[in-house]
C-alpha cells in the first residue's frame, strides 16, 4: 500500500491496478474530497464577505444627484448688467486639493430683468462641449458638432436634443447663487423635451 500511493511507481500503474483503490478504502478518498470542498466553501464564504465592502467602496461615487449639489456664489448682482449674457466662474463646491484647475467651472449668466436670471451650463446639451456666446448675433455656438442655441437657451439648430442646461438660482444679500456641483448631463438635469420643428419656439428651458 505504501509504495502504490506514489504515482512515480510505474510498475504499479502499468500493472493495471488503480492507485486510488490501493491507497486505501473509498472512505479516505471521499474524506479528502470532503475536506477539499469544505476548503473551497470556506474561501467562497470569505470571498463573499469581502465582496460586500469592496463593492461598497467601488460604488462610493454612485450617490444621489442632490447630495453633490450645494449653493455657490457667482458674485455680486451688479456684475451682471440687465439684458446681457456674461461668462461667470465658480469653484466646484466639493473640490479636493489635488483637483488643480479642474474645479474652476464656467457658466453663462443672463440677466433678463432686475431680479430675473437665467444661468446656463457651459456644456452643450449634445455631448458636453463648451458652448461659446456671441453677443452680436445673440447665439451660443458649440465647436464640437455645431449645436446652436438662442439667447434664452432654447435650441436653435444642430444635433442637441434640447436647449442648454440651466442651474437653479437665488439671490442672497445682493449675491447671485446657483445650485451647482455636478456636470450637467441629460440624466441629471431636466429630462428630455420634445423638439419642436419650428425654430425659435423650443419649449425647453431646462
Amino acid at each position: 500500500m505504501s509504495n502504490a500511493a506514489y504515482p512515480a511507481n510505474r510498475q504499479e500503474k502499468t500493472s493495471g491496478v488503480n492507485p486510488a483503490t490501493t491507497s486505501g478504502d473509498a472512505r479516505i478518498v471521499s474524506r479528502r474530497w470532503l475536506l477539499f470542498k469544505a476548503a473551497i466553501a470556506l474561501n467562497g464564504a470569505v470571498g463573499l464577505v469581502l465582496a460586500v465592502p469592496i463593492f461598497r467602496y467601488l460604488l462610493a461615487p454612485w450617490r444621489k444627484d442632490a447630495s453633490y449639489e450645494s449653493w455657490v456664489s457667482l458674485g455680486a448682482l451688479d456684475e451682471f448688467p440687465v439684458g446681457e449674457t456674461r461668462l461667470a466662474n465658480y469653484k466646484n463646491p466639493s473640490a479636493d486639493p489635488w483637483d488643480g484647475q479642474t474645479d474652476n467651472v464656467a457658466c453663462y449668466v443672463r440677466r433678463e430683468g432686475p431680479g430675473e436670471f437665467k444661468v446656463f451650463a457651459i456644456n452643450c446639451a449634445h455631448l458636453g462641449c463648451p458652448v461659446r456666446w456671441f453677443p452680436q448675433s445673440q447665439l451660443f455656438m458649440c465647436p464640437c458638432h455645431g449645436g446652436v442655441y438662442y439667447a434664452d437657451g432654447s435650441r436653435a439648430s444642430g444635433p442637441p436634443e434640447r436647449g442648454l442646461f440651466t442651474y437653479n438660482w437665488k439671490i442672497v444679500s445682493d449675491n447671485l447663487q446657483i445650485d451647482a456641483g455636478q456636470m450637467p448631463t441629460l440624466s441629471n438635469t431636466a429630462k428630455l423635451v420634445t423638439i419642436s420643428t419650428r425654430p425659435g419656439d423650443s419649449k425647453c428651458s431646462g
Partner: peptide
C-alpha cells in the same frame, strides 16, 4: 454625456466613470 443617456442608471454610471460628480482629481 454618452453614459448619461443610459436609461435609469445613467447618472450613477456618470458618477462611476468620473469618480464623482464632475471631471476632477
Amino acid at each position: 454625456s454618452i453614459m448619461s443617456r443610459v436609461p435609469w442608471i445613467g447618472s450613477g454610471l456618470v458618477h462611476l466613470l468620473l469618480g464623482g460628480p464632475i471631471i476632477a482629481g
